[in-house]
Simulated assay, not measured.
Amino acid sequence: MTEIIASLGDIARRYDVLLCDLWGCLHDGIHPFPDAVAALQAFRTAGGRVVLLTNAPRPEAAVRAHLNAMGVPTDCYDVIVSSGDAAQEAMLAGLVGDKVFHIGAKADENFFTTFSDDIVQRITIARVPLDQAEGVICTGLADDRVETPDMYREVLLGAKARGLKMICANPDIMVDKGENRLYCAGALAALYEEMGGEALYFGKPHAPVYELARRRLAAMDGKLPVDERMLCIGDGIATDVQGGMAEGLETLFITGGLAGPDIPLENGMPDAAALQAYLARHQQSPTAAIGFLR
């Protein structure tokens, strides 16, 4: 039975490491959430370690720069791990060839130019037109403010006709940016699979991004984290919760994010009946649930 809690402090003593999502948990894409920042700072002050585990399709350095520009304090986390990092590893290992066609925004150009020190560059990647490509890299829509996945049917059909595999650098279907919901790379990958194409995923809920998180945690002090003392935090039932559970980790579901329209809050706490109905519908059972991270 999922435990409804009032604050992270109610259960924090059980854990040494938090794997915390960004969008919908620490910020809304525009502003950080002060209560969430304070909760993570308190956890670190008590001796815990915080990994910001994000499905952003960008390398760690770009995520860090974005958080700095947004005003997220650096003392609320220890390390950043992005699905972009994990997808870069797959690309540089040649998983879809060395000539790739990119679907994504200009803001994602750094996916091909900026690599963390622990990302091994095994091959050289060339970005080419679709008719010359050996594979597809999808970091998102070119303009997620106005575009929808259906607008990409023609290019996806072209990739499918050539039998190209797609690396999806962000499995999220959508995110909330302020008051707006925007489509992500996962929506394009899902459409590609519906067409019969093959998509490969490297963010939550898939294993590679968790493997990278463990590796970066171990690199901090030479010790592997104990799974029983790790907690995954996020508002994505099919990404943060499902991914954490698949890894054998305990999870804290933030109900006021993506699930907000389905799970009303009462005095800041998720309605118990609505929460259980939502979890039953999605066949997931997080360890605990909270309206917003605090």
Score class of each variant (00 low, 15 high):
5 I>N: 06
7 S>C: 10
8 L>R: 11
8 L>I: 04
12 A>W: 14
12 A>D: 09
17 V>A: 04
17 V>L: 07
26 L>F: 05
30 I>C: 10
34 P>T: 00
35 D>A: 15
35 D>Q: 13
36 A>K: 03
39 A>Q: 02
39 A>R: 02
41 Q>K: 13
42 A>K: 09
44 R>Y: 02
44 R>F: 02
49 R>C: 12
51 V>P: 10
53 L>R: 07
53 L>Y: 03
58 R>W: 05
59 P>L: 01
59 P>G: 00
61 A>P: 05
62 A>S: 14
63 V>P: 03
64 R>E: 08
66 H>I: 14
67 L>A: 00
70 M>Q: 00
72 V>Q: 02
72 V>N: 00
76 C>L: 09
78 D>P: 07
82 S>R: 07
86 A>N: 00
88 Q>C: 01
88 Q>E: 03
96 V>Q: 02
100 V>C: 10
104 G>E: 07
108 D>R: 06
110 N>P: 15
114 T>D: 15
115 F>V: 02
115 F>A: 04
118 D>P: 02
119 I>C: 11
120 V>H: 15
121 Q>K: 15
121 Q>S: 12
125 I>F: 01
136 V>R: 01
138 C>Y: 13
138 C>A: 06
145 R>P: 01
146 V>W: 08
146 V>L: 12
151 M>W: 11
152 Y>S: 05
154 E>A: 08
154 E>L: 09
155 V>S: 06
155 V>R: 03
159 A>S: 06
160 K>T: 02
161 A>T: 09
166 M>E: 00
168 C>W: 00
169 A>I: 02
172 D>P: 07
173 I>Q: 14
174 M>S: 15
178 G>H: 14
182 L>E: 03
182 L>Q: 03
186 G>L: 09
188 L>T: 04
191 L>K: 15
193 E>Y: 02
195 M>H: 09
196 G>A: 05
199 A>F: 05
200 L>Q: 01
201 Y>I: 12
202 F>G: 07
202 F>P: 00
205 P>G: 05
216 R>S: 00
220 M>E: 12
225 P>C: 01
226 V>S: 10
227 D>K: 11
227 D>R: 12
230 M>T: 03
239 T>D: 03
241 V>G: 09
242 Q>T: 14
245 M>I: 12
245 M>R: 13
249 L>F: 03
249 L>T: 00
249 L>G: 01
252 L>M: 07
255 T>L: 10
256 G>E: 12
261 P>N: 12
264 P>M: 06
269 M>H: 14
277 A>M: 11
279 L>R: 10
285 S>D: 14
286 P>C: 08
287 T>S: 14
292 F>R: 13
294 R>S: 13
